[in-house]
Nucleic acid binder design. Structure first.
Lengths: 411, 411
DNA sequence: TTGAAAGCGCTAACAG
DNA sequence: CTGTTAGCGCTTTCAA
């Protein structure tokens, strides 16, 4: 029988370029060449190489190839979560687009923790990825430094699910506070304002925003801030409530109770993330009350007293609520149906995310449709472009407020 | 100014072990050692190394490390889809468990295509992963060969979301038909049978199974086959229908119509996958009719004529339907509510997957709760065990038929 | 059209 | 406790 040809420190039984070369009666460089530039190899040789390739079941070792060439095709992506349909679809968009371009996706989840983000980032950067995709614009100082140096070393860094106005970014850059990475997403402040505007337009003056309660989800908080700011500047009353943890549908059901009970039931701080503007702390507890803003009501409908009962706090009862996501909103809507609370008559309900079932409910839930999948596709495209030397364009992606029965205008 | 220290073919600006060593006044092996076995380095030296590490912002190059040591910590996973909550949660389970163990997750989606699976597998194997996770037990011949040789080379291969009885597997092995990989999941045939049994127990004799219409999702078809087999052997009538493509909620709504119209409306072949048992083709179109099986009704309730009208085909109208997933079932349930069709009075509805909203509907949807997240965790644990030399245990994971109002027994 | 030599950044083995 | 040497499997020169 053939003696085991096991050399010192030789890999784990997988055949190498040299094995193929031996079988084909050439040197390894010829096989390597055949694999990358078949045109440069004589047809006669090619035939033998092809046969040897099949015979040995050769699978190229990418670490070796990458080490030698310095060219990576791995893209590292960091998402808060893979199970949430929001990020799952983004992952799918990334995966589809990257696969089509021959890249591979190394993925990690952070559970919304900046600490875990930094840790994972450190691990992923060790693969010298062709590009890095992170979620959001806020990172730990360490992560920020890692990203900056990666970017400097030529690895494009892309921030998804967030977007700042160019002017904002220029200001920050001037202040030297951070490195400008490519952003692909949308402004959560803007969405929050649009959500408020939508409810104002429907004639509501007593609004509430229900936050998800995930402390580190600063984007949800920003929507809440935008919502409250717009409402106040229109002279409306706003409460910000925080949903309890646990099943979000049940949390939504519970929130319906609190909303009906009146604004004074609102609770919970605003969970400003670590990057919140200094000096903007308003203390814990409910932030509510009429705004000191300028406008009194922008689009037509003048303020009008609510026909509903006064809430517990002595202030008027909330007549319209916006939620951090469709799960919460749906829970509230289902609970309202069970209790025969008129939607939108007694309370208008507005979600965020526009999940597939939202339009199926009765009444159908108004929501904000998000470019979930497209964010992944656009991020992949931007990073592919960056690799080709094209400076990747910032992209504010389109979202859309989808008005359905749950926020139909009051008559 | 300092001369650019750019050496020939030197990497891309990132600092290497040698840079750190120089800064610390030692050789690279000492730094390497410090990183892996700090105890072996003198404290004095360690101090200088630590400083140099920080100063240079060193990030270890994993390809080089892996190439030199032959030890990989990458796990490659192939899933049909990342956006579907079923696989998204599995991905999360994998990610969480793997991250905790210091492994990294290289992920790819196949869109249920065996061809894409093989292609992706080939690409991922190039990273010499520590283990490979694939979905299901059916693969293209090429993929099968790749997996077998990977397994032989010492890379554990784990098949998730499916499970066969040890006896079945032994038979297959004896027939030499395939390599035995570790399976972590459950038997879809068994689930299908349980779904039928549940409806039979509730007194139904005219059943239907609604398939998802994804041709390559053989697991859904197997559930359908198990469902039909159990129903027939109990002497009940069964139709197998196939949902149209597009939004699954809307498809479910449409299917309600067809179910109410009677069994003759059923259509679509059974989409047996490429691995279906030879000789089992029953031709296209609806497979229906009373079974030639043995039992007449197992658990109590004797066959009882339906009180509802006769269907179009002259046979009795369907009184209970099981669906390939909760999306379809929910669509049907919502449509029934809209049309004031009594659920479960006129038609009992049973889903699969037990998604979060299913229990929120009215009536609440009966469904099969799946170990979505746990499959990921168990797969990760099995592969971790395999790496430690423990032969990974096959695991049939628990599912549970959750009976709710939508299939409450007829009175 | 093919090959030889050198090196990517790191680690295993063996000295010292 | 630290260093030297060789080599992981591949690709990049450069030469024939």
């Amino acid at each position: 029988m053939p003696a085991p040809t096991r050399q010192l420190r030789r890999g784990h039984g997988r055949s190498t370029l040299r094995d193929v070369a031996e079988a084909a009666g050439v040197t390894s460089i010829t096989v390597s060449r055949f694999l990358r530039e078949p045109a440069l190899v004589a047809e006669e040789t090619a035939v033998r190489v092809r046969a040897a390739l099949v015979q040995t079941g050769y699978v190229p070792n990418k670490q070796a190839g990458l080490l030698a060439s310095g060219v990576s095709n791995i893209v590292a992506a960091l998402l808060p979560n893979l199970a949430n349909s929001i990020f799952a679809e983004t992952a799918q968009g990334l995966s589809d687009t990257l696969q089509a371009a021959g890249h591979e996706l190394l993925i990690a989840s952070t559970g919304y923790s900046l600490e875990r983000e930094e840790e994972q980032l450190r691990a992923l950067l060790g693969w010298h990825p062709a590009a890095v995709v992170v979620t959001g614009r806020r990172h730990s100082p360490g992560a920020q430094a890692l990203l900056a140096s990666a970017q400097q070393a030529g690895t494009p860094v892309i921030e998804i699910w967030d977007w700042q106005l160019p002017s904002e970014r220029a200001a920050q850059r001037a202040a030297g506070s951070r490195n400008p990475f490519t952003q692909i997403g949308f402004s959560h402040d803007e969405v929050g304002r649009a959500m408020a505007q939508h409810l104002l337009d429907a004639g509501h003056r007593h609004l509430a925003y229900v936050d998800s309660g995930i402390a580190e989800d600063y984007r949800a908080h920003e929507r809440g801030l935008g919502f409250a700011a717009r409402a106040r500047s229109a002279g409306a009353e706003v409460s910000v409530l925080v949903a309890p943890p646990g099943d979000p549908f049940n949390a939504g059901r519970e929130m319906l109770q609190r909303l009906l009970a009146g604004p004074a039931q609102g609770s919970g701080g605003e969970h400003d993330g670590p990057g919140a503007r200094a000096g903007s702390r308003r203390g814990r507890g409910e932030s509510s009350g009429s705004g000191t803003g300028t406008g009194t009501g922008s689009q037509g409908s003048a303020p009008r007293p609510s026909r509903t009962a006064k809430g517990a706090g002595g202030r008027s009862a909330v007549t319209a609520a916006a939620f951090a996501n469709d799960h919460l909103a749906s829970g509230a809507l289902l609970e309202a149906a069970r209790q025969r609370v008129a939607i939108p008559g007694r309370l208008a309900l507005l979600g965020f995310g526009d999940f597939a079932w939202s339009r199926q409910l009765d009444p159908a839930l108004s929501s904000v449709a998000l470019p979930r999948y497209d964010i992944g596709v656009a991020a992949a495209q931007a990073l592919l472009a960056a690799r080709r030397g094209t400076p990747p364009a910032e992209r504010a992606l389109q979202w859309q407020l989808v008005a359905r029965a749950s926020t139909a205008a009051r008559r």
